[in-house]
């Protein structure tokens, strides 16, 4: 750096271009709209509503969290062999895994849930013979089961995609260094694959949180189920408003957590500035 630094040039005068006027216009419109909605909602707010139904909402929230947590966990475990099969050079194994992913990604979660829940009901005798009826009798378990299968397909695809994404040369280099396939996978491929798959994983959790509302149709009192019950007694749309807020809070927490994890995992990729050095 030299001693004689020139002062920065003066900022160019900002003119009122058409785009700028339009921008202010739109902004004003949105602020007005927000004001109107705020006034409409808070104008005559029934503060007793949330107080009265808070336990119901909390109950539903807990169920939703359990549902999503268990489904994501079992889905993750299940996705490992599916990913392996998806990347397998054996054509039969690969085709089976492709079929699995194809089915669960290609059909609505609602249809899958109905298939499992009401389908299991018609095979009661068979399930009883196998000792599985207590599991399939319960709506919550049926929902966890279906959601796990569904998310396993998505998670396997995320994982397989990010493993494929790691440049081929890295594997070749590892092989040239004489590293075993296991070490290559654990120390070289997976750490990089995990960074790539982090965002899609976060999306999958968010989709699962929102998709879990389907469980309410098969009698599970998750957040949506409790909301429907509250609505059926009050006919007050405020019921859905609070449910939306709670879903939004869950998604926002995941988003923030994911930002942190990503910052942590990608430390080595961040260019450090001079004053930090």
């Amino acid at each position: 750096m030299s001693d004689t630094t020139l002062p920065p040039p003066p900022a160019p005068a900002r003119r009122w271009t058409t785009a700028r006027i339009a921008g202010h216009g739109f902004m004003g419109f949105w602020i007005l709209l927000a004001g109107v909605i705020g006034w409409a909602i808070f104008g005559d707010w029934d503060s007793g509503f949330l107080v009265q139904y808070a336990p119901r909402y909390l109950n539903g929230l807990t169920t939703t969290l359990q549902l999503v947590g268990l489904a994501m966990l079992f889905g993750a475990l299940l996705s490992l062999p599916i990913t392996w099969a998806r990347l397998s050079s054996n054509r039969l194994v690969g085709a089976l895994a492709f079929g699995w992913v194809y089915f669960f990604r290609g059909t609505p979660l609602l249809a899958q849930t109905f298939l499992v829940y009401y389908g299991a009901g018609t095979f009661r005798a068979e399930f009883e013979a196998l000792g599985l009826w207590p599991f399939f009798r319960d709506a919550f378990f049926c929902a966890v089961f279906t959601f796990s299968l569904n998310t396993s397909a998505y998670q396997a695809e995320i994982l397989a995609g990010s493993i494929r994404n790691v440049a081929r040369g890295q594997r070749e280099a590892a092989a040239a260094l004489g590293l075993s396939r296991y070490v290559t996978m654990r120390k070289i491929v997976l750490p990089q694959a995990f960074i790539v798959s982090l965002r899609p994983y976060g999306n999958e959790i968010i989709l699962m949180i929102k998709g879990s509302a389907i469980a309410s149709i098969v009698t599970v009192f998750d957040l949506m189920g409790e909301t429907r019950r509250i609505f059926s007694r009050t006919f007050d749309f405020e019921a859905y408003f609070w449910a939306a807020v709670l879903y939004l809070v869950m998604v926002e927490l995941i988003r923030r957590l994911w930002d942190r994890i990503e910052r942590h995992l990608t430390q080595h990729l961040v260019r450090r500035t001079d004053n930090e050095a």
Binding site: Y118, A120, G121, T122, R124, A139, T219, G225, S232
Partner: peptide, 18 residues
């Protein structure tokens, strides 16, 4: 208590013994 959107659905579950 288990709540169903239509009567058809609780009938299915009653028939299956759920």
């Amino acid at each position: 208590l288990k709540l169903y959107p239509t009567a058809e659905e609780y009938k299915l579950d009653l028939a299956s013994g759920r």
